[in-house]
């Protein structure tokens, strides 16, 4: 066995074993909520585990939705924050499980969704860029945001 492997292999094994308990979760729902609505005093759940109203000073300042889509084979957990008019404020990837295609987490790619409404095309290769090597993930996340806007993007009552 080459000398460098004798040093690196045990270290890699130790790191693997000691880290196995930590989920590869980039954000929790609570963290994503805070990022999307830093001024919110509270989040009122309107669908269990799915949708929350962000409130501040007794007023609704937006809607926060948790959902997941299939990337290639496994689920991608993501959240969408909408303003009271139904415009996208922010999209975050909470968990990406697959080994390829994780580029959908890139901030520059997710930033494309900001300002989109239920009237936006939200179509890959039109108003959303495709990601080579993550074609299915980019299509599916786009499709997921579009579905959320179709459902919740008509303004909050």
């Amino acid at each position: 066995m080459p000398e460098w492997m004798k040093w690196t292999a045990p270290a890699a094994a130790v790191v693997s074993l000691t880290s196995a308990a930590h989920a590869v979760q980039y954000l929790t729902v609570a963290q994503a909520q805070k990022l999307a609505f830093p001024s919110a005093a509270q989040f009122v759940e309107v669908q269990a585990g799915r949708a929350w109203k962000a409130e501040s000073g007794g007023k609704v300042i937006g809607l926060f939705v948790f959902d997941h889509v299939i990337g290639k084979h496994l689920y991608i957990d993501y959240t969408v924050a909408l303003d009271p008019a139904g415009r996208v404020l922010r999209v975050d990837i909470l968990q990406y499980r697959e080994s390829y295609g994780g580029e959908v987490r890139q901030a520059s790619w997710l930033a494309q969704f900001v300002g989109k409404t239920s009237a936006s095309p939200l179509t890959v290769d039109q108003d959303i860029r495709n990601i080579s090597g993550a074609t299915l993930s980019s299509h599916h996340v786009t499709e997921g945001v579009k579905r959320i806007l179709a459902t919740f993007g008509h303004g909050i009552r």
Binding site: V46, L63, H68, R157
Partner: peptide, 19 residues
């Protein structure tokens, strides 16, 4: 997907819990 305008309705008995 939840039904339209579901945001103001009572939550389903059980939906996917985050995480």
């Amino acid at each position: 997907a939840p039904t339209a305008a579901a945001a103001d309705k009572a939550p389903p008995a059980a939906e996917a819990a985050p995480g």
